[in-house]
Simulated scan of single mutants.
Amino acid sequence: MELRQLRYFVTLAEELHFGRAAAREHIVQSALSQQVQRLERELGVRLLNRSTHHVELTPAGAVFLVEARQILDHVGRAAHAARNAVASPRTLRVGIIDAGYDSMPQILRALQQRHPDLTIHQVEAGTPEQYRQLADGRLDIGIGRASHTPADVASELIRLDPLGVLVPDDHPFAMQNGVPVASLADEPLLLGEDAQTPEFNQFVIELCRSAGFSPIVYEGTVESTRAAADLVLQRRCVLCVPSSSRTSNRPGTVWRPLVEPVTHYPWSLLWRSGVPSAHVAAVIDSARQLARRLGWLETAGSISGREPPTVISSGDDSS
Rank of each mutant, 00 (worst) to 15 (best):
S304P: 02
L43Y: 04
P168E: 00
L166A: 05
A60T: 06
E206W: 01
G212H: 08
L12K: 06
V63I: 13
M104D: 04
G76R: 08
G192H: 13
V254I: 12
R41S: 14
P257E: 08
H26Y: 06
N177F: 05
G76Y: 09
A282F: 08
I141H: 05
A227Y: 07
A227P: 05
H17S: 09
G274K: 08
V241F: 00
Q112L: 09
S248P: 00
I27W: 11
Q133I: 02
Q196K: 10
L108V: 13
I120N: 08
E14F: 01
Y265E: 02
R83E: 14
V55W: 05
S268A: 13
T58A: 14
E15D: 10
A174Q: 01
T52I: 07
L6P: 11
A68I: 07
P242W: 04
L290F: 05
N84P: 00
W296H: 15
F64A: 15
A13I: 12
E193F: 04
R4C: 07
S277A: 09
V241N: 00
F18E: 10
I284L: 14
Q176S: 12
L184F: 02
L294F: 07
Q37E: 14
L139T: 06
C240D: 00
A151M: 05
V262M: 05
L157K: 06
R7P: 04
F173W: 05
D102M: 11
A287R: 11
A154C: 01
G212W: 04
T197K: 02
V280T: 15
P59C: 09
S243N: 09
V45A: 07
V280H: 06
V283R: 05
G61S: 07
I141Y: 10
R235T: 03
T225H: 11
R4V: 11
A174P: 05
C208H: 00
H53T: 15
D186W: 01
L139I: 13
G137W: 01
E187S: 10
A182Y: 05
D230P: 00
G252P: 06
F173G: 00
Q176K: 15
V204N: 00
V311K: 04
Q196N: 06
M175D: 13
I107D: 03
A300W: 13
G100Q: 13
L134S: 09
S88N: 14
G76K: 03
Y8T: 02
A79M: 13
R288I: 14
S304M: 06
L166C: 01
Q133F: 03
Q113T: 09
Q202E: 14
R109Q: 12
D186K: 12
L12N: 03
R90H: 15
I97D: 00
E56P: 02
H53L: 12
A13S: 13
V311E: 10
R288L: 12
R145F: 04
R38V: 07
R50E: 13
Q35V: 10
Q112P: 02
E307M: 10
Y131G: 04
P261G: 04
S183E: 09
A60L: 11
G100N: 13
A81Y: 06
R132A: 14
G19S: 12
A79N: 13
Q5V: 03
P188I: 02
